[in-house]
Amino acid sequence: MRKRSLIVINLLAVLAIGTGFTFAVLAPSERTQGDFAKIMFVHVPSAWLAFLAFGVTLVGGVVWLVKKSPLADRIAASSAEVGVFFTGLALVTGMIWGYPVWGTFWDWGDARMMSTAIMFFVYVGYLALRRSIPDPETRARRSAVLGIIAFVQVPLVYFSVTLFRTLHQGTTVVRPDAPIDPEFLRALMINLGAFTLVYLAFTGWRTRLARMEDELEEAEAVSDFEIAGSGITAPRLGEVTGDV
């Protein structure tokens, strides 16, 4: 992505976050939870964007395995990093909301919380794997495979609220009879759009940085490379003639 496009996305993201924040403040308070429910304007988009980010990592991995495109690997890796950030944000905001509403930061019986934490660590492992492999091609190949395996967690997290008995509320927004106030839903959707722009900006800049890192690595590898015969120095003819 070009630098100018990234700057435009950045500006749009800042503008959208501002709009999202305004709509979040103006949205009606929830009947039983009061203003605590407004943390959902950060929590829900973070969780959705984490799913999207890991989906992009999966697609990037598959594309790399098929086409061996370095760009696909960079996008996959950048998206995983941003996905880990959003997963962490979803977990933290969930815990902050859980304390006043459920009476606890962490509930062992909550399948969504547990499975999200597991997903977080799976992708932390993905990032750790990338850091462990210096060779770019081996790194891309192995992380592509791990990115595919890791994605198995995403449907598990999504369906955890229907599979397990859990405290977490079930599917709400995508239900046809969504029990949600239209004003609240509008603010949620605006925030989802804003977070998507933030995701695009983060991933775009990170991918760009990854390309620069690759170029630097390549340049360093070339400068470290000794040319055959470089160990032999030219004969110092002056000294030789002086001795004679």
Binding site: I118, F121, V124, G125, L129, S132, V145, V152, Q153
Partner: peptide, 24 residues
């Protein structure tokens, strides 16, 4: 094991990959 084959960090990295993936 295949993903971490031949890596210097194999012994520490493999449990980090296996444990969360096996949680389901």
């Amino acid at each position: 094991g295949s993903v971490t084959a031949g890596l210097r960090t194999r012994n520490t990295l493999t449990p980090l990959l296996v444990a969360p993936l096996s949680m389901p």
